[in-house]
Nucleic acid binder design. Structure first.
Length: 130
DNA sequence: ATTCTCACA
DNA sequence: TGTGAGAA
C-alpha cells in the first residue's frame, strides 16, 4: 500500500496531472518555471495539492481562451493580494481579447469574401470555356 | 519514474 | 510556448 509519493485524492504527482489534462510533464514544469505554479517538494520531487491542481485548471482555461502565460501569471498573482484588482485586470484583459478576436473575425470575413469572389470569377470563366 | 540544464524552434 | 536530449 506504499506508493512512492502521492496516491490519494488530495495529493498528485506531476504525471497524474499530466495524464488527467492531456499535457506533458514538461509543460507543467514549464508553467512552474514561469511562476504560474508553485507545488511543494518532497526532496526534489514536486507534490501538487488540490489548490495547485485548481490553478492548473485556470491556466489551461486561460490558454484555451487565448491568453498568454504572462497574462495568466499576472492574473493568478493577484489572487492572494488584491482581489478586486484581480477582477479589474480580468475584465480589462477580456476586453482586450475581445477587441483582438473581433479584428481577427473581420479579417477572416474579408478573406472569405475575397476567396468567394475569386471562385465566382473562376467559375464564370469555366462557363464560357464550356 | 523524477529532476535539472542547455539547446532549439 | 513549449520540446528534445543528456545526465543524475
Amino acid at each position: 500500500m506504499n506508493r512512492s509519493v502521492p496516491e490519494n485524492r488530495d495529493l498528485f504527482a506531476i504525471a497524474d496531472l499530466a495524464k488527467e489534462f492531456g499535457i506533458s510533464t514538461r509543460a507543467i514544469r514549464f508553467y512552474e518555471a514561469k511562476g504560474l505554479l508553485a507545488p511543494e517538494r518532497v526532496g526534489a520531487t514536486r507534490i501538487f495539492r488540490r489548490r495547485d491542481r485548481a490553478r492548473l485548471i485556470l491556466i489551461l482555461r486561460g490558454k484555451r481562451l487565448g491568453f498568454s502565460l504572462r497574462d495568466i501569471s499576472d492574473y493568478l498573482s493577484l489572487y492572494d493580494a488584491n482581489r478586486s484588482q484581480q477582477v479589474q485586470l480580468l475584465t480589462a484583459k477580456i476586453d482586450e481579447r475581445l477587441v483582438s478576436l473581433e479584428a481577427q473575425l473581420q479579417d477572416l470575413q474579408t478573406t472569405i469574401s475575397e476567396l468567394k469572389e475569386i471562385k465566382k470569377l473562376a467559375d464564370e470563366r469555366l462557363e464560357k470555356a464550356g
